Amino acid sequence: MIQGSMVALVTPMAPDNSLDWASLRNLVDWHLEQGTHGIVAVGTTGESATLSVEEHLAVINAVVEQVGGRIPVVAGTGANSVAEAMELTEGARQAGADACLLVTPYYNRPTQEGLYQFHKYIAEQVPIPQLLYNVPARTGVDMLPETVLRLAEVDNIIGIKEATGDMVRAKTLIEQSAEDFIVISGDDATAVELMLLGGQGDISVTANVVPSTMARMCELAIAKNAEAARALNEELMPLHRAMFLEANPIPVKWALAQMGLIPAGIRLPMTPLAEQYHAQVDTALRNAGLL
């Protein structure tokens, strides 16, 4: 079942920016031990935009293999080219991923009808459950609720990662879609509120550094234990803010390197965390007991 704290897993890289397979497998094992409910491989946080197709599929295969069916694996397979999105989605299906996450086609600036036709086509061609992913701050295109609700009726499209942080929009999607359509937050700071409205989880950046706490917070929110969930989220808020001082995944990869969990590699055009932010991220990590 796709719900709860779904970590948007980083892709570890060596200082020369080659993929660090040992660190990737160790991260997966750590998340399994810490109670993470699911893993999203090669999404935005996994630097999908700068991995080759071959690397992208290799990471999905490695994560699926390491998880071994113990929790769901959702593979990021979106692209601004329908051919590339199809290739990645079919590759994830063959690798044994439980579902795919397809970001809205970026840069092209498609119409709402273009978004509908793009996602409908892929869902009809590749028989694997698919989640839409709306993050207009990064893609430059906003999939409106009416388009999402149209796509919710397409076989294989099982839900959406809604990353706008807009609770009015989230409420509309939850109330007007079918009961089995999954609405998941893509915004850590507001994820509790989305889950209290009836959303099923959070695809989380913060879960990279505090997986067990994020899992507990999601469990409380899904159970509608609002007071406890909000209290825990308030404790996490300094980490939520720290993880977005610069574009994701710059801060979270720096944090994980400080924690000794991954090397410091990150691919251009992303750069290491600017020195002016080191103290803020370091303080958030120390106050959370992570250093």
Rank of each mutant, 00 (worst) to 15 (best):
L291C: 10
P251I: 00
V209E: 03
G265V: 04
L232T: 05
L115C: 11
A95W: 11
A41D: 01
L27T: 07
L115A: 11
D180M: 06
G78N: 05
E275I: 04
M167F: 05
S185R: 11
M259R: 13
F118Y: 15
W254C: 02
L197V: 10
H278V: 06
A14F: 10
A231Y: 02
L268C: 10
L9G: 12
L88T: 05
G69A: 11
G186A: 14
M167Q: 08
V141I: 15
I71L: 07
G69D: 13
A163R: 12
I222A: 07
K161W: 09
A242R: 04
A279N: 09
A226H: 00
L256H: 11
M143E: 14
F118C: 11
Q258T: 02
V141D: 07
A92G: 12
I262P: 14
Y121P: 01
N225R: 03
S23M: 02
I266H: 12
V67Q: 06
V82T: 15
S23A: 15
T283M: 09
N80A: 14
N156M: 00
G35I: 06
T89G: 04
Q34I: 03
L245I: 14
P129F: 06
S81G: 13
D98G: 12
A189I: 07
G140R: 10
A41I: 01
K120Q: 12
M6Q: 12
A215Y: 13
D29K: 02
D188H: 01
I39V: 06
V209A: 13
P269L: 01
V42E: 02
D98R: 02
K253R: 12
L144Y: 10
Q200R: 15
F244R: 08
T271C: 07
V64A: 05
L245A: 03
L51P: 05
E47Q: 15
T213R: 15
Q280T: 11
Q66V: 00
A163P: 13
I184S: 14
G199C: 08
G35Q: 09
V126R: 02
P105I: 06
T147R: 04
V74T: 09
A170F: 03
P272H: 04
A257K: 12
E54V: 07
I250H: 03
L115K: 04
Q94C: 09
I222W: 06
M217S: 06
R267L: 13
A191E: 09
D20N: 15
K171N: 14
G38M: 01
G35Y: 06
H37Y: 09
R109T: 08
I122C: 11
V209R: 01
L57T: 01
A97K: 05
E162M: 13
